[in-house]
């Protein structure tokens, strides 16, 4: 029910594994995590959302904020998501055009622009 976050490094990418619910209450924790990673010099992020049960617009806003931060350092932010109900939220807000969305962490880590 709450938000879980863990990070690991794969090559030059930092994978953020997110689980639980990202909403108006928990999204600030995700924001803090992304800000901290960028401040520490991690500019190529992969956010693994396979364990996310719920995502709302507050969460979308945090991801967009993260994307802006990494782009300021010529970095990247890729998402991993296969869940239709989560993908739908990206589609109706037009954000599928903003984020590269991958089927697996391996695919996201291997991807280049």
């Amino acid at each position: 029910m709450d938000l879980s976050l863990s990070t690991r490094t794969v090559g030059d990418r930092t994978v953020v594994e997110v689980g639980g619910e990202i909403d108006v209450y928990t999204a600030p924790k995700l924001r803090e995590q992304l800000v901290e990673l960028v401040n520490d010099g991690n500019y190529h992020l992969v956010v693994d959302m396979e364990g996310v049960d719920f995502l709302d617009s507050t969460g979308l806003g945090v991801l967009v904020g993260g994307l802006k931060r990494v782009r300021a350092h010529e970095g990247s932010l890729r998402l991993v998501c296969n869940q239709e109900r989560i993908l739908k939220i990206f589609r109706i807000t037009g954000l599928t055009k903003v984020f590269p969305i991958h089927n697996s962490v391996d695919e996201a880590v291997a991807a280049t622009d």
Binding site: S57, T58, L60, G61, I92, T93, G94
Partner: peptide, 16 residues
């Protein structure tokens, strides 16, 4: 601004 959560929130509601 896409980061504007109010705009995003309304977009989600009207989209759904």
């Amino acid at each position: 601004d896409p980061e504007d959560e109010d705009a995003l929130g309304l977009a989600v509601i009207t989209g759904l």
